[in-house]
Simulated scan of single mutants.
Amino acid sequence: MTYHSVMTPEAPQPAGGVWESQGAFPNYAVFYVHVQDVAETVKRGQGLGAKVLMEPVSDSAGFTFARLQDTTGSHFGVFSAPAA
C-alpha cells in the first residue's frame, strides 16, 4: 500500500494522508477520523449498525486503520497513531 502522510508545521504526528487504492475501491474520497482505539471503535460502530469494509490493520510505523460503512451507505475510516 502506498500512503503519503500530510504533515502540518510543528505537528507531532500526521494531520492526514493520501492512500493510493490502485483501483481497489471506487474513485471517491474517504475521510478518516483519529480515534484512541480502532478495534473498540469498530466494535462500537458495528453495534450501531455500521458494516466493516476493512478490518483493523497496522502499518510498519504503528498506525492502525479500519474502514466502515454507516447505515446511510457512506464510507469512512478510523485510525490511531502510535504512542508518542
Rank of each mutant, 00 (worst) to 15 (best):
residue 2 T to E: 13
residue 2 T to G: 11
residue 2 T to N: 13
residue 3 Y to G: 07
residue 4 H to F: 08
residue 4 H to S: 10
residue 5 S to N: 14
residue 5 S to P: 12
residue 6 V to D: 13
residue 7 M to H: 06
residue 8 T to A: 15
residue 8 T to D: 11
residue 9 P to K: 15
residue 10 E to D: 13
residue 11 A to P: 09
residue 12 P to S: 06
residue 13 Q to G: 14
residue 14 P to T: 09
residue 15 A to T: 09
residue 17 G to E: 07
residue 18 V to Y: 09
residue 19 W to N: 06
residue 20 E to W: 07
residue 20 E to T: 10
residue 21 S to K: 06
residue 21 S to N: 08
residue 21 S to Q: 07
residue 22 Q to M: 15
residue 22 Q to F: 15
residue 23 G to Q: 09
residue 24 A to C: 10
residue 24 A to I: 11
residue 24 A to E: 12
residue 25 F to S: 06
residue 26 P to M: 07
residue 27 N to Q: 14
residue 27 N to C: 08
residue 28 Y to L: 08
residue 28 Y to C: 04
residue 31 F to K: 02
residue 32 Y to N: 09
residue 32 Y to C: 05
residue 33 V to Q: 06
residue 34 H to C: 13
residue 35 V to A: 02
residue 35 V to N: 02
residue 35 V to D: 00
residue 36 Q to C: 10
residue 36 Q to D: 15
residue 37 D to Q: 12
residue 37 D to M: 11
residue 37 D to Y: 10
residue 39 A to Q: 08
residue 39 A to G: 04
residue 40 E to P: 04
residue 40 E to D: 12
residue 40 E to M: 13
residue 41 T to K: 04
residue 42 V to H: 01
residue 42 V to S: 00
residue 43 K to M: 08
residue 44 R to H: 12
residue 44 R to K: 13
residue 45 G to Y: 05
residue 45 G to A: 15
residue 45 G to F: 07
residue 45 G to T: 08
residue 46 Q to Y: 06
residue 47 G to E: 12
residue 47 G to L: 07
residue 49 G to C: 03
residue 50 A to N: 15
residue 51 K to W: 01
residue 52 V to W: 00
residue 52 V to D: 01
residue 54 M to F: 05
residue 54 M to C: 07
residue 56 P to D: 04
residue 56 P to N: 10
residue 56 P to Y: 03
residue 56 P to S: 12
residue 57 V to G: 04
residue 57 V to L: 11
residue 57 V to Y: 07
residue 58 S to D: 01
residue 58 S to E: 01
residue 59 D to V: 01
residue 59 D to Y: 00
residue 60 S to H: 10
residue 60 S to I: 09
residue 61 A to T: 08
residue 62 G to D: 04
residue 68 L to I: 09
residue 68 L to M: 15
residue 68 L to K: 02
residue 69 Q to H: 08
residue 69 Q to F: 04
residue 70 D to W: 05
residue 71 T to H: 10
residue 71 T to R: 13
residue 72 T to P: 05
residue 72 T to E: 15
residue 72 T to V: 12
residue 73 G to I: 10
residue 74 S to T: 13
residue 75 H to A: 12
residue 75 H to Y: 11
residue 76 F to T: 05
residue 77 G to Y: 02
residue 78 V to R: 00
residue 78 V to Q: 00
residue 78 V to C: 02
residue 78 V to H: 01
residue 79 F to C: 13
residue 79 F to K: 05
residue 82 P to Y: 03
residue 83 A to M: 04
residue 83 A to C: 01
residue 84 A to T: 08
residue 84 A to R: 08
residue 84 A to N: 07
